[in-house]
Design a protein around this nucleic acid. Structure first.
Lengths: 224, 224, 224, 224
DNA sequence: CATGAATGAGAGTTCATTCAT
DNA sequence: AATGAATGAACTCTCATTCAT
């Protein structure tokens, strides 16, 4: 029996957010924003572990102690950083290709949107992967983020199965996990691990390959 | 044009191995082995970052200083740990199903062997993932390990394409990257992330799902 | 051909000074000063090598970590200590005997001033000698300090040669090196090596002896 | 009143020598000799402080533990090293110029012999200077070595005073200390501190300068 | 709210010396 | 007499967090 696919796909709230109450004054808001921005920069540059709080405050041009006015520790700034970036990482502004009925076109558009968003936020994704290995709270966060896509795709697969377009033998959730995972691994390899010296994989080839394999895996009808 | 698939798929040698010369006496060998064993235990229990050298020496029941007789630092013991485990992680003792000509059976056996090895070494794989995020040398190591499987599978795909069993449209290396990645993600999710409280995914279902998707993705003939 | 005697005899700046930025607050300045003072005391008491940073911070009544707010390591405090003492070690507040034309009187005053300064800073000189044997940067520092005196005296010798008072056969720089060295060795022996139990050399005898030998060496006219 | 000049000018015995009884077997003698030789090499190369006992045993091609069969610690090997080198450092094989009566010629020969010996043993002298700053026992040793020369020269000065060749006003010991010190400082600067890149001071100029100054300082008769 | 100096526990690392073989 | 692994005390340096100003 397939798992529950639908239900509240609540956005993966960043951990520990809102512990400290938000700044009341305008100056406070400015300082906090500067800290979050600085933290993102430093985290992306040095990695989570090597980032020192003083690096962040220095980058934000404020005193070391001011940090604690807004955050209890490094984890919390990171949560704030991720919270701010969530929007773009989750709802990659999908273009309205949905109008069409061609499942292959829809699938391709979806994959392209995902990969584009991944590429756009590559450094942040790298950071998230690192942090997930180090801080359990963020492993949770990464999981929830993954689930958003997995559920979304599982719904799509189930829908296609209903319409007779996709292989009915596979469990939609399992298939979605596998295929979504496939795409995310490819994205990680292409945009995070890709070494600068080597020529990167061609973006379009990436899109078409994962889309073709995905479509085949679900036995979309028609020969391509 | 497909990348080079064959060539020497040299086993991914652990980094920095053999810096300190190996112990000459029997006693030395014993101590070194005890340290490696202790290190593996502590690493798997506490993670690479939280493992303190004194934890390792305590576990190995030797003095703190003795550690430095055999290893220059934490990285080096880890290299030794991985080196020792490599065998089982890479050559999962594939059962001789190769006799058959049924590509599906071969594929399934291969996936089962991979997943079994992953499960067997789950803690070590978790460790490797963590370390790869933290020490560049080990990111390299992880990559090389992945390549071993990717190349092996790419050869298989190319072979099936020649025999007319697999879709000739996809590039064997790209497809192998995507599909091997798919399996490894599933393995990671099932054996590393799986939370004890939740009931784990059924192993057989895992094998059959990834195999079916893989076969479909390459358009193996025949309906299942 | 005599070497260049004149030119900028820049004071021998202590090595590595000013690496850490100076404290901005008053409290910071106080702490830093306390550390330098404590360092001098500990160095003079225990020697450079045996001085532990915790001894210094303990003496300065601050936490071990505070040390690193102002100095990167032991070398740097020492540099600060020497920097602070430089003034007195280099410009021994020469009394205005210069008014006289009697070269012998001038020479004697100069030697007396040097020896007095050496005696006053004997412990620091001992420290400098020790450190020069251990840290190349400070060997350099000692050399530069020596050069200040050597050049100063070489100018004096050259001047006397011009006035026909000193032997013109000797190269002023070589002679200055030899004679300045002679005085500094005597000072080292008298004020650093002198054992407490033995009665020290009479200060006046020291001054008169080196002055007489120096004057003779340059063939000052007149019989004494 | 001049200090005692004569008396037993006992050779400056190296400290702590002969603590361990000498090796009985031939093999033992060989090992010990190898250790002393290795120690000298390592000390001269790395300095006393940076020399590790294992470096020495490695150089001598014997086990770390063997060291303690012959020496109690680092100090003791150094003592052995110095003891072996004493001969050449103290009795520089003075050429028989003593035949002549010309005090200037004798003085020059003496200085030349000293400087030549210093140059020949420059690395050892550097070592001795370093060690004297670090280990009180060897400060003593250095002093005694210096005294040998100072006394020898003081006797020479007293002799010349008796013969009416040298200024009778100066105390022979004081003068000897000053002038011997002058020569040793020059030697130290020329042969120990001299930087390889800079052109070294001309040896003959060195000899003639210190000799001339020395002779003048004692008011040797005759114009040069 | 901001500042930035002060804190101090804790980790890694070295190496002279010992001792079982 | 030789070996070389084992020992463990000692020391430096880091940096998140606190707090007086």
């Amino acid at each position: 029996m397939p798992e529950e696919i639908d239900g509240e796909t609540a956005p993966p709230v960043a951990p520990h957010s809102c512990l400290r109450e938000p700044p009341t004054t305008q100056r406070g808001a400015r300082t906090r924003a500067a800290l979050v921005k600085a933290a993102r920069k430093v985290f992306e540059r040095d990695g989570y572990l090597d980032a020192r709080l003083t690096d962040i405050t220095k980058e934000a041009q404020c005193a070391a102690g001011s940090f604690y006015t807004y955050f209890a520790n490094k984890e919390e700034v990171l949560a704030a950083v991720l919270l701010e970036a969530q929007e773009d990482m989750l709802h990659p502004g999908m273009p309205r290709v949905q109008d069409t009925d061609d499942p292959y076109a829809v699938l391709e558009a979806s994959n392209r949107a995902y990969l584009e968003a991944y590429k756009r936020n590559a450094k942040l994704m790298a950071l998230l992967e690192q942090v997930a290995q180090v801080e359990p709270e963020f492993r949770e966060f990464r999981s929830r983020r993954g689930d958003v896509f997995i559920r979304r795709n599982a719904r799509g697969i189930a829908d296609l199965q209903t319409r007779g377009v996709a292989d009915r033998e596979v469990d939609p959730m399992m298939a979605s996990r596998a295929l979504s995972g496939m795409v995310s691994v490819m994205a990680y390899n292409a945009f995070v691990l890709a070494e600068p010296q080597k020529e990167a994989v061609d973006f379009e080839e990436l899109v078409s390959t994962v889309t073709r394999l995905w479509a085949n895996a679900l036995r979309f009808p028609g020969h391509r």
